Structure formats: C-alpha cells, structure tokens
Simulated assay, not measured.
Amino acid sequence: MSSDPALPSWLSRVAVFDLETTGVDVETDRIVTAHVGVLDAKGREIASRDWLADPGIEIPEGATAVHGVTTAHARAHGRPVLEVVADVTGALRSLLSQGVPVVAYNASYDFSLLAHEAMRHGVDPLSSPSPIIDPLVIDKAYDRYRPGKRTLEVVAAHYAVPLEGAHDASADAVAAGRVAQALARRFRMPETLEALHTQQIGWARSQAASLTEYFISIGRIEPEESLDGTWPVRS
C-alpha cells in the first residue's frame, strides 16, 4: 500500500502557462510563442490556446535553435505582439479570478517577461498574480540536496513525466502542470493554495540567496551583486 499523499483537491484543475521568447532577459526580450491550457486531475489537457507573435525585433539564431521559430516565420505568420500580450494576460487574469491556480515552471521568468511586455505595449500587467504554482521552486524546497540540473526536462524525467518536444510552449506548459501534480503526490503540500503561494515566496527568496552565495564563491558574480529572488514577478 502506498503512503504517498493523495492529490490535493485544489490540484484537480490547474491552468498551465509557458512562453518561448527571443532570449532570457525579462526586461528586454520579447514573446515569440505562448501557451495557456487547463489540466484535469489526471493531467489531461481539457482546454488550450496557443499564440505565435511577431515580436517586432529580430529573433536571434540562438533562440531559434531552442524553439524553432525564425524571424521570417514570425513576421509572416505571427500576430502583432500587442494583441498576443493582451490575449495572454487576459486569459491568465480570467483563470486566476476564478481561483484556478496557474502552473509555470520557473514562474518568475515567464510572469516577469509578460509583465514587461505588457508595460511596453500599454497593457495592464499582472502585477501580483496569485495563486501560482512553480514546480521548480517546490522541487528545490522539498528535495534540496538532490544533485544535478533542475531544468524542466531533467525534473520531468525524475518524476516520470513524459516531455516530448521540449522548448515548445505547449509541451513545456503541460509537462510543468503534470510535474506539479507529481510533486503533490510525492510530498505533503500545504492544505490551501494560499498557503502554498505564500511559502513559495519565501522559498524563492532563500533559494536566490543561496545561489547568490554560490555564484560569488565561484566568481560568476561580484560580491556586491545579488540575484533577484522576488516571486512570482521580479521586482
């Protein structure tokens, strides 16, 4: 008989969100593709929307190598980025207003970049989205000393979650949602979404502080520098 915790009722229906972008700087890089979906308790996607944007800037070859979208393809087939930013922000705002938690892997990246895009294009941003579930933050909190990388591909494999087509916004979003459900079955989670959201704020802050110390020790950043641990939208 398994002693693993049952799936909390608040994880029986979750939204999933992922962006593929022109780069990794949340302040200056742009959205290329986006996915927002909804999973049921068995991890099946029961609703979804995908967007392809013309980001308005060149898509670097390095970014294209990750997600497969070229500048020419985005210009020919993508919607104006203003429309995409407004649509994605509106879809997430609607789900959150209904109390549906949104799962995003490394949420502070996707939500921060979306917020900067919103401000850039005159869209009302999601300044304090809640409730958010971030499998990266949760996995680091519950299994802190596990060696190895914590990319979505690696963590999904660790929890036996299939991930085909990594760095496709749809595949990554769905896999992140299923990892969140796997984590909830493996570890005993807080009783409410609100408690989990609040705990993740603290976990993300302490994880950033720990990583800051490590990066300083190996000379990757200067002693006076620090990583921003604000979650789910960086300050």
Rank of each mutant, 00 (worst) to 15 (best):
residue 93 R to F: 02
residue 185 R to D: 00
residue 17 F to R: 02
residue 41 A to R: 14
residue 147 P to G: 02
residue 22 T to I: 12
residue 27 E to L: 15
residue 232 P to H: 11
residue 106 N to S: 09
residue 23 G to A: 10
residue 138 I to W: 11
residue 197 H to S: 01
residue 58 E to Y: 00
residue 87 D to P: 04
residue 80 P to R: 05
residue 52 L to R: 00
residue 38 V to C: 06
residue 162 P to M: 05
residue 173 A to S: 12
residue 137 V to G: 02
residue 77 H to C: 05
residue 66 V to D: 00
residue 174 V to P: 02
residue 153 E to V: 15
residue 182 A to K: 10
residue 50 D to Q: 12
residue 117 E to Y: 07
residue 230 T to R: 13
residue 38 V to P: 05
residue 209 A to V: 12
residue 151 T to L: 00
residue 141 A to S: 09
residue 159 Y to F: 14
residue 124 D to R: 15
residue 227 L to R: 07
residue 66 V to C: 04
residue 87 D to I: 01
residue 120 R to S: 09
residue 4 D to Q: 03
residue 96 L to H: 08
residue 50 D to G: 02
residue 13 R to L: 14
residue 41 A to G: 07
residue 9 S to F: 03
residue 215 F to Q: 14
residue 68 G to A: 05
residue 110 D to K: 06
residue 86 A to E: 13
residue 193 L to S: 11
residue 66 V to P: 01
residue 93 R to L: 03
residue 103 V to E: 09
residue 8 P to Y: 10
residue 229 G to C: 09
residue 196 L to Y: 04
residue 211 L to A: 08
residue 72 A to Y: 03
residue 109 Y to P: 02
residue 158 H to S: 12
residue 76 A to P: 05
residue 130 S to N: 00
residue 205 R to A: 14
residue 193 L to I: 08
residue 232 P to E: 07
residue 150 R to N: 10
residue 30 R to S: 11
residue 163 L to I: 13
residue 148 G to M: 07
residue 226 S to F: 12
residue 42 K to H: 12
residue 197 H to C: 00
residue 164 E to L: 13
residue 221 I to H: 02
residue 73 H to G: 03
residue 170 S to R: 15
residue 75 R to V: 14
